[in-house]
């Protein structure tokens, strides 16, 4: 191997950082060159990040989503993945300015967590492991995206309602597409997280003999699911749209963050990755 995994991570985070700086610059001065530069940096960062994951997979023998360091980075990786899909399909102005800071923050958090590759505990040595965790983080990434899109919606709606059309008005996309995307992302995230909970339950049944054990992570995942079920409900049945749903999806993401990080740092859970990561 030419690069040690550690360098791949540093390089990836460097490119994400560059991409974030460029994407924030875009808020003040948007040109095609700037967006291309941002996309290129993000793509290079993503490639390096993926290589890092492969390298860790080869040396550890399991999907690199077991330690908190790996999981946080994987969360960021999923966000970028969804971001690239959206970028290809919709090309929303300024989306990156709201996404890249999130990605970088997660990577930064990941970078300060212990990175050692340890043997996987016997409990986690199961084919459910990869499926369960990937689904959960892809779901979380969709919620993160819905959060970003929700903020964009609120800013753009504020412009339209207040009739002050300076600022980001010209470069932010129309509110209809933002609202539509919010719905799609929340639905996607909800389905993925629901599947993650189901696979988790099946896994727990086969490994521990019980579907549900009221572990804090399980409880908070259920709360997250309920919050998003509520968002989908009010949208589909009560005709809520736009601003209210955007605010709800921002609140929803706060719950997601707590379920992911809060539970691990504050509560005692069997879902705590490698226990010694957290002190």
């Amino acid at each position: 191997m030419i690069f040690k995994p550690i360098y791949l991570f540093e390089l990836a985070i460097t490119f994400y950082f560059a991409s974030m700086i460029v994407s924030v610059t875009e808020i003040f001065r948007g040109t095609k060159t700037i967006s291309k530069l941002m996309i290129s940096f993000a793509a290079i960062g993503f490639a390096l990040h993926t290589s890092n994951m492969i390298a860790r997979y080869i040396s550890g023998g399991y999907l690199p989503i077991a330690s908190l360091h790996e999981a946080t980075a994987f969360f960021a990786w999923c966000i970028i993945l969804i971001f690239f899909f959206l970028e290809l399909r919709y090309q929303l102005g300024l989306l990156s300015s709201f996404v890249m800071p999130m990605v970088f923050a997660l990577m930064l958090l990941s970078s300060v967590l212990p990175r050692s590759i340890k043997p996987l505990p016997p409990l986690l040595q199961s084919s459910w492991f990869g499926v369960h965790i990937s689904l959960a983080f892809l779901g979380n990434a969709a919620f993160a995206m819905a959060f970003g899109v929700g903020i964009m919606y609120l800013i753009q709606e504020k412009h339209l309602k207040s009739k002050h059309l300076g600022g980001l008005f010209k470069r932010l996309p129309n509110i209809q597409v933002l609202d539509h995307l919010n719905y799609r992302l929340v639905s996607l995230g909800f389905s993925l997280l629901a599947l993650a909970v189901i696979t988790g339950a099946l896994w727990a049944q086969s490994a521990l003999g019980a579907y549900w054990r009221w572990d804090p992570k399980e409880v908070w995942s259920l709360i997250t699911l309920l919050v998003y079920a509520l968002i989908l409900h009010v949208r589909l049945n009560s005709g809520w749209r736009g601003r209210k749903v955007a605010i709800l999806s921002i609140i929803g993401f706060m719950v997601v963050l707590f379920t992911f990080l809060g539970v691990n740092f504050l509560l005692d859970s069997s879902h705590s990755f490698f226990r010694e990561d957290i002190k």
């Binding site: 753009q156 339209l160 129309n174």
Partner: peptide, 19 residues
Amino acid sequence: ENAVSISFAAVELARKIFD
């Protein structure tokens, strides 16, 4: 870049409300 007549301003706004 920007509309400078009332009727064009209306179109410009419509484009930011509808996709």
